[in-house]
């Protein structure tokens, strides 16, 4: 086994060159390059997580914006509905008032007309009384041949009419 046979003659050379070469490799690659490469990886990871966070923040902002818009929209809609209801109520009130005025006017005319009719009826009644009294006097004169005073005939007619 050369590893053992040559041990005494190559030992120093093996250890020396290993320490020199491995030491150089450790200094140049291990300490010089590896931290930079790991730094690049860390930087990339940071960038990715930062971008993701920014995207999430933008999305949250958009959601909030939409929420606010929706709220405003709802408020506007309620306000519009309130205006419409108010206008409707005002219109209904106005038409009610107009109707009431028309009704009073109509009532007044109705009452007037009724009064006219009553008056006409009363005068017609009075006329009927006098005509009846005249007719009663004529009938009495024809049948009994007696002359009845106009006042007595009227009183008799009145009495009969009052009794129905």
């Amino acid at each position: 086994m050369p590893q053992i046979e040559q041990l005494s003659e190559v030992f120093a050379s093996q250890v020396f060159w290993l320490l020199v070469i491995f030491g150089l490799l450790f200094l140049v690659v291990g300490l010089g390059m590896v931290p930079k490469i790991m730094g690049t990886v860390d930087l990339r990871d940071q960038q990715i997580s930062g971008d993701l966070a920014a995207a999430q923040a933008a999305r949250d902002a958009a959601d909030r914006e939409e929420e606010a818009w929706r709220k405003r929209e709802n408020e506007n809609r309620t306000a519009a509905q309130g205006l419409i209801a108010e206008a409707k109520a005002a219109a209904a009130k106005a038409s009610e008032a107009k109707l009431a005025a028309a009704q009073t006017r109509l009532d007044a005319r109705l009452a007037e007309a009724e009064a006219g009719i009553d008056a006409a009826r009363a005068s017609a009644m009075a006329e009927i009384e006098s005509v009846a009294a005249d007719a009663a006097r004529d009938i009495v004169a024809r049948i009994a041949g007696a002359e009845v005073e106009a006042a007595a005939a009227e009183a008799a007619v009145k009495e009969v009419m009052a009794h129905g």
Binding site: E9, V10, S13, Q14, W17, I21, L25, V29
Partner: peptide, 19 residues
């Protein structure tokens, strides 16, 4: 004795390749 041997040469080759 620290002669540059074939062993040292292959170590150096490995180191250069890693680099």
């Amino acid at each position: 004795n620290i002669a540059f041997t074939n062993s040292a040469l292959w170590m150096a080759l490995a180191a250069v390749l890693v680099w």
